[in-house]
Design a binder for these strands. Structure first.
Length: 561
RNA sequence: CGGAACGUAGCGCAGUCCGGUAGCGCACUUGAAUGGGGUUCAAGGGGUCGCGGGUUCAAAUCCCGCCGUUCCGACCA
């Protein structure tokens, strides 16, 4: 493709609305342009890469027996009401104003709708249905460019099976296909076991890419590949000590001491000699949660331990419940349920709040002084702690969710009446799985992992072009004739070539554009080398330059770099 | 939804405090020079100063309301 005739608007300056590297570079290299918050237009160069990603996805989905559909983005609201998801999605669901339609944020309902009455026998299954299509979600806060948008392209797949065993097979196939897709795209990723969440299924796994721009926090063990969302991640760390001699409880005057740090300073003690108190409302009944030292309560873990609704108490509720304000609350004399983190199990000689403002207690022995205490894992794993599986060191970092595979079960088939007859003539609900990939996120993540100070650094198979051919001074007849000839023969060799044939534009402009656009190989044709019948090859990634005789250029390209 | 910032030419920004006929750099057009790392010179074109209202002889500038964009947080099947 000739640059002189292409719409590839590059930007020298950093657009002010972009913050993360992939977003900045996607705009600067003319891949995308923003239309509105969380809504992007794909420009020709960006869409070319996106098509390559989609082709890889199609190949791998077809390889596991997937059949490609194209479902409508506009859906009748009625179907969404039947599964209760108009309410479940709430404000995230876009609703059309002048007709009873919604813009589909996902397609479980539509898949179930088409399966109903068409998948009627156990002989009709298994089925793998997928599509690559635009989804709409009214995100309250779009961010990070294409990574979190109000409109985005998703590959979503659905399996229809007769039973759980069939679902296991479909699930495993998708796991395999997803690994193949992300491997082929050249991404460094890892797989995280996720909580089943509100979708109502059993097992789910997330495919994640480490990134500062991520919205999930995960704990990861390099050695044994243990990976978990920090909402559920566990770790091994030092427990509170149990001393031989258990002191009696005594009260200490601690004026203006509120935090654990202040208490440790004031009493000259270690943080692991203290038990921090947090009060939550569990279905409108107070619960005291004790944590070791400064550990924070992991509210996801707390909620799954207690069940029901859990929220932190408001500051003005605390005095009524405990007799003291935050900073002086403790287990002794607390009249409601008390639970503690496992690190505190059987701890004694501990310091904690006295349920009396400006007082703390010492000599706390949890098993002696708190009769009905129960212990659970309630803390959040932190960077540098030990892996629960292999005792190696855990790394905790932010990550972007690229894909999610999910065992749905029969929630949608039951709600919409998608039933089949088994070999005994008995009516059964179809068992579903759903599997998503953020197509644009693949591209954004690839860029997050592949760029330098000059710009993008593509590699096969996502590179929009194999070769960026630069004719330096195209007003020079020899240069332009040679470059034109090279352009034709490179294409004849089967390369995808972007040809900078612009008549104006100095060498510096062309070099910088080529580095910004980041094709793997640059072929540079200029007067200097042409005098000796040579041209230059440059490896964009390594910056390595080689001067080659024109006749040998194509041979040289075919050698591994 | 809570907190904060910003909105002036295609892009990046100054001007706003302290009201008085809208500026800079890049990009663009024309001409010339240059031609291996964003080169140089000259001449140009392009702006309802986000929108609406108010104060004033006079508003990009002060006041009120709205909209938009971004960041932090909450939310995230």
């Amino acid at each position: 493709m000739r640059l002189s005739k292409s719409f590839i608007p590059t930007l020298k300056e950093v657009p002010s609305e972009a913050v993360i590297p992939s977003h900045i570079l996607m705009i600067r290299a003319g891949l995308v342009r923003q239309l509105s918050a969380g809504i992007y237009s794909w420009l020709p160069l960006g869409y070319k890469v996106l098509r390559k990603v989609m082709d890889i996805i199609r190949e791998e989905m077809n390889a596991i027996g997937g059949q490609e559909f194209h479902f409508p983005g506009l859906n009748p609201k009625e179907i969404w009401e039947q599964t209760g998801r108009v309410e479940a999605f709430g404000d995230i669901l876009f609703q059309i104003k002048n007709r009873e339609y919604v813009l589909a944020p996902t397609h479980e309902e539509i898949v179930a709708y088409h399966a109903k009455g068409a998948i009627v026998s156990y002989k009709d299954m298994p089925q793998i249905w997928y599509q690559i299509q635009t989804k709409f979600r009214n995100e309250p806060r779009p961010r990070s460019g294409v990574i979190r948008g109000r409109q985005f392209i998703m590959k979503d797949a659905y399996t229809l099976d007769r039973d759980a065993a069939g679902l296991d097979v479909g699930y495993a196939l998708h796991d395999k296909a997803y690994r193949a897709i992300f491997d082929r795209c050249g991404l460094k990723y890892f797989v995280v076991g996720a909580s089943s969440g509100a979708m109502g299924g059993s097992k789910s796994e997330e495919f994640m890419v480490k990134s500062e721009a991520g919205e999930d926090t995960v704990a990861y063990c390099e050695k044994c590949q243990y990976a978990a969302n920090s909402e559920v991640a566990q770790s091994v760390t030092e427990t509170a000590k149990h001393h031989e001699e258990s002191k009696a409880v005594y009260e200490i005057s601690t004026p203006n001491v509120k935090s654990i740090d202040e208490l440790c300073d004031f009493l000259k003690i270690h943080e692991h000699e203290t038990a921090k108190s947090r009060v939550y409302m569990h279905d409108e009944k107070p619960v005291l949660v004790l944590m070791l030292g400064n550990d924070e309560v992991n509210e996801t873990k707390l909620t799954s331990v207690l069940g029901g609704n859990v929220r932190p108490c408001h500051p003005d509720e605390l005095k009524d419940i405990s007799g003291a304000d935050a900073g002086s609350i403790g287990p002794i004399g607390f009249k409601h349920k008390i639970i503690a983190d496992t690190l505190l199990k059987d701890a004694n000689n501990m310091f904690s709040g006295a349920n009396k403002n400006d007082y703390h207690i010492g000599g706390l022995d949890l098993s002696r002084d708190v009769p009905n205490i129960e212990y659970f894992d309630l803390r959040t794993a932190e960077n540098g702690e030990k892996c629960i599986r292999c005792d190696s060191t855990l790394e905790v970092f932010k990550a972007i969710e690229l894909g999610h595979i999910f065992k749905l079960g029969t929630k949608y088939s039951e709600a919409l009446g998608v039933l089949y007859l088994d070999e005994h003539g008995k009516e059964q609900p179809v068992v579903m799985g759903s599997y998503g990939i953020g197509v644009e996120r693949i591209l954004a993540c690839f860029i997050e992992q592949n760029y330098d100070e000059k710009g993008l650094t593509w590699k096969e198979p996502l590179a929009p072009f194999d070769i960026h051919l630069i004719g330096l001074n195209m007003k020079n007849a020899l240069v332009s004739e040679t470059a034109e000839r090279l352009y034709i023969s490179l294409i004849a060799e089967g390369y995808e070539v972007l040809f900078d044939d612009r008549l104006d534009g100095s060498a510096g402009v062309k070099f910088n554009d080529a580095d910004l656009l980041g094709m793997p190989i640059q072929v540079i044709v200029g007067e200097k080398n042409l005098k000796e019948g040579k041209a230059e090859l440059k490896n964009r990634r390594t910056g390595e330059k080689t001067i080659v005789e024109l006749e040998k250029l194509i041979d040289k390209l075919q050698q591994p770099v």
